[in-house]
């Protein structure tokens, strides 16, 4: 027993080293003065200042943030509705198809999603003259579509674990369906919605392939700019950018995780108290 757990834990350590070492090294080298990726030329923040002067990257970052906020918000609304529709609305025709359409985007290869959405936009353009120019608008729609599925799955798992008698009690006390959703369901699934929003936000910030397909000539998101730079090789400015992004995300996730853990504990405490 003991021998096997030593084996397990050494593999676990190896796994974490494998997951984290490349990122750590990347972050360390972002402070390297030398342009050569791996020759240590002393500590420097020059790539950070170069980054601040690079308006192309900054513009792209701004655009990406804009798209991420809008698409995450819309995806949270749509995804939550979808989860309610699948979990709290009983049976109706087309429910099976609905379930399928929610689960499929989770595993659909990005190239297919990207290609199909672009072809949709092109066809719509021909048919009804919308969406005009492709750019932030089409990227946002694409991001909403695939990230709402993630939100729906997160909210759905919360709904499934939630005691339905709470909603039944609210109805018994005279709440109409809309009011019940607003007064009882939403407050209870709010943490799941927040988690869904965060996930949708990062998915949008992170997406390269779908954005590349659906963006017109004009719009370049941050991943698109990064990709075009790193395709040519290691770029010190990107190291600095990566460090900043990973730093922000890590802090964000840790804070969010910590808050959620605390809320869960409070909830658990309230529930265990007689």
């Amino acid at each position: 027993m003991r021998r096997s757990s030593t084996f397990l834990y050494s593999l676990l350590c190896f796994g974490y080293a494998f997951l984290y070492l490349p990122i750590l090294i990347l972050m360390i080298y972002s402070f390297n003065d030398s342009r050569l990726a791996t020759v240590w030329g002393g500590f420097s923040t020059r790539w950070y200042s170069a980054l601040l002067d690079n308006s192309q990257i900054l513009d792209a970052a701004l655009l990406s943030l804009q798209i991420a906020v809008i698409s995450a918000t819309a995806a949270t609304v749509l995804g939550t509705l979808a989860a309610l529709g699948l979990n709290r609305m009983g049976r109706y025709r087309g429910r099976t198809l609905f379930t399928g359409m929610i689960a499929a985007p989770l595993v659909m290869p990005e190239v297919i999603t990207g290609l199909s959405l672009l072809l949709l936009f092109v066809s719509l353009q021909e048919l009804i003259g919308w969406p005009g120019t492709r750019g932030a608008n089409t990227i946002t729609i694409a991001h909403i579509t695939f990230s709402m599925a993630y939100v729906a799955v997160i909210v759905q798992s919360r709904l499934a674990s939630m005691d339905q008698s709470l909603e039944e009690a609210a109805m018994d006390l005279g709440g109409r369906p809309f009011a019940v959703t607003l007064d009882v369901t939403l407050p209870l699934i709010a943490p799941a919605m927040a988690a869904g929003w965060l996930l949708a936000f990062t998915l949008s910030l992170d997406d390269l392939v779908i954005a590349s397909f659906t963006a017109g000539a004009g719009a370049s998101t941050l991943p698109m700019v990064i990709f075009s730079k790193v395709k040519l090789g290691v770029t010190p400015e990107i190291n600095a950018l990566a460090t900043i992004i990973i730093g922000i995300v890590t802090v964000g996730v840790l804070v969010a995780g910590w808050t959620m853990l605390r809320q869960q504990r409070q909830l658990a405490n309230q529930q265990t108290r007689p």
């Binding site: 090294i25 791996t38 790193v230 290691v234 950018l241 990566a242 964000g252």
Partner: peptide
Amino acid sequence: LLVILPFWTSFLLRVYAWMVMLGKQGLINN
């Protein structure tokens, strides 16, 4: 959390990190 964390950080940049590791002048070769 340590398993989930990379899931939240940029996929593109994590792939890029391996370019730093594996290149001809990359860390491993050096």
